[in-house]
């Protein structure tokens, strides 16, 4: 046997991701998270039957990367748009991909009510504790003391409140069927993130209801850190305040 014949390909671009370079900054986790989502679309054989609601944030251009049907949503409204998509095409796989400014600030009402109605959709929530796209302003998820362009003295609990833990909040709603918080800062966590996404996809494809996966994510550019430092911050400061884990899994045996 030749050496070539023995080689097995173990890594490739998912079919549902286009072969184009990302515009994301070096060290940004958006790209890795895109890949994980695309892997599940492929694994579940859903590329031809997926409808995505894009949001407004650094991932607004997700339609440049995912080769599936995508509609743009106004800032924060993706869960309402996804509700319309899913109600009109209940047999399609419908997901939103939203940042923390989009989902936890301007779009709070839409995410809470989509979850509460138990919409059979999947929400991919990318929490980088900052408004990335607009240049690093304070988000509802910004940690206490964190310096941003609109909290130059650090986020003050007294005047700005504390960071919102969305996964915990949504888990209190009867309509939320699955909720997990994951990160992609090391291989161990990446594997757990994959498993959480797989579970979320299972929920929707089986018609079990609203599934939600929060990713703690880096934003080296607006955190004013190197890629390595930002990655380390996700695992330390971020995960300390936003504990990783599965918060709700109503079909767990």
């Amino acid at each position: 046997m030749s050496a070539k014949a023995k080689m097995k390909q173990v890594f490739d671009r998912p079919k549902s991701l286009k072969d184009v370079p990302y515009h994301y900054c070096p060290g940004c986790h958006h790209g890795v998270i895109h890949r994980l989502v695309a892997e599940q679309i492929d694994a579940f054989g859903l590329q031809e039957n997926t409808l995505a609601a894009a949001s407004v944030g650094c991932s607004v251009l997700m339609y440049d990367y995912f080769d599936v049907d995508v509609v743009e949503s106004p800032h924060g409204r993706a869960p309402a748009v996804a509700t319309g998509l899913k109600r009109a095409r209940p047999d399609s796989f419908v997901f939103t991909y939203q940042g923390d400014g989009d989902l936890a600030a301007i779009g709070t009402a839409e995410i809470v009510h989509a979850a509460n109605r138990g919409e059979n959709i999947t929400v991919v929530f990318v929490n980088n504790a900052v408004f990335g796209m607009t240049g690093g302003q304070m988000a509802p998820t910004t940690l206490e003391g964190q310096v941003t362009t609109t909290s130059p003295y650090g986020r003050s609990a007294a005047t700005d409140g504390m960071a919102i833990r969305v996964c915990e909040m949504l888990s209190t709603l009867e309509g939320t069927a699955y909720a997990a918080r994951v990160s992609v800062d090391n291989i161990k966590n990446l594997k757990k993130a994959k498993a959480a996404l797989k579970r979320a996809f299972t929920y929707q494809t089986k018609g079990w209801g609203f599934s939600f996966v929060e990713f703690l994510s880096s934003c080296p550019t607006n955190w004013k850190m190197s890629a390595e430092e930002a990655n380390a911050r996700v695992g330390k400061e971020m995960a300390d305040y936003f504990p990783l884990g599965v918060y709700k899994d109503v079909r767990a045996n």
Binding site: L51, A53, V71, S73, P74, R77, A80, V81, A82, T83, G84, L85, K86, R87, A88, R89, S92, A109, E110, H113
Partner: peptide
Amino acid sequence: AAINMLLGAAAT
């Protein structure tokens, strides 16, 4: 929310 639900349904 209602107008955005319309946007989603009409997009299909």
